[in-house]
Design a protein around this nucleic acid. Structure first.
Lengths: 183, 183
DNA sequence: CAATATAGCTGGACGCTGTACAGTTCGCCA
DNA sequence: TGGCGAACTGTACAGCGTCCAGCTATATTG
């Protein structure tokens, strides 16, 4: 543009880039989330972003994992089934207003970021306290994750209203938990 | 390219376009499925496709629905729970080797094509014969669909091997069906 | 059978994308 | 104080989906 001075530091930060991308996603959706749009919002040249992020896919990965940091941790000492229920509900709530992010998650065959990993560990611990371990735990984990992510992706797009979808999610989740932790 | 004679009919068909797109998806994945690649495969100029397909999104929608035509219909007079189980298993199998298609499905907030609709109706009928009707049926339908699509999307990408994932899917599915159809 | 309308295809182009390259300049550390 | 590495710039490229205008082989009509 000629307005920005060449070579001058804009004080750009990795987390500033993530935040800008996240905001853009929230305000205008995935289609509007282009590297150029993020750069514009930060008043910076498009390629400046590549000093802080490997590429757009990695950027989206990180935005997703940042998002997962907002999942509220359950009471690890309470009832395990209720703890699992709480984690899944919170996860869905956190993801549901970034619906475009979830297909990306699925296309990447699952999240691998630190926050995603932490959630997985918490769930495994809860399952263990409920007497589900080993292969059983791995299977239960996967079922719960797939179910939750699926519901987050479908968002409120079906024939049901928003709060109906929440109750619907809840109901299926309890069916799964009843199967996972019998009695 | 100057090789093809201008104005000459290539005998292009809508279903030929769908087939080419489907093949490309199977052989080289979603990233390789560009309008230009489809056109090249049909030995045609890229914009010729737009005589048969509204745009790329619609093309993907149609490829998906074509795919759903392959789902094997269950015995409508047998045990409803087994019928539902069979439909979901078949759906997952049909989608699992076009894994890129499923995030697209989710991003579009669910399939709406004729074959998808037919599957929905079959499921509702089975649920009805199991005594699940009205809102309960709509909720059960949604839970089953989300679960199945989710597993199709995650494909075999997790920590489990391919056939393990199949058994894993089966297990969770039975939990859900046990909740939907008690007794 | 001749004239006309139409639908299928073409080359070309537009605006947009992600991102590579090389150069400039700043802040920091020896 | 000198130099080095990191941050940022302008520029550019290849590839994308898709629109437009034109040509022509075919179908339709008189």
């Amino acid at each position: 543009m000629g307005i920005r001075n060449p070579g001058q530091r804009a004080g750009l930060t990795r987390s500033a880039v993530l935040a800008a991308a996240n905001d853009l996603l929230a305000e205008r959706g995935l289609a509007a989330l282009t590297m150029r749009a993020v750069a514009t919002r930060l008043d910076v040249a498009p390629n400046a972003l590549y000093s802080h992020v490997a590429n757009k896919t990695a950027l989206l990965d990180d935005v997703l994992d940042d998002r997962l940091a907002l999942v509220t941790e359950p009471d690890v000492d309470g009832d395990p089934a209720e703890g699992l229920h709480a984690v899944m509900v919170s996860t869905r709530e956190v993801l549901i207003d970034r619906p475009d992010l979830v297909p990306h998650y699925l296309a990447r065959q699952g999240a691998r970021g630190p926050h995603a990993q932490r959630l997985g560990e918490i769930m495994v611990a809860l399952l263990g306290r409920a007497g589900v371990t080993g292969d059983d735990a791995r299977e239960a984990l996967r079922v719960l994750i797939v179910y939750t992510i699926g519901f987050a992706a479908l968002g409120t797009g079906g024939p049901l209203a928003a709060d109906e979808t929440g109750r619907n999610f809840d109901r299926g989740l309890r069916w799964l938990l009843a199967g996972i932790i019998p009695g």
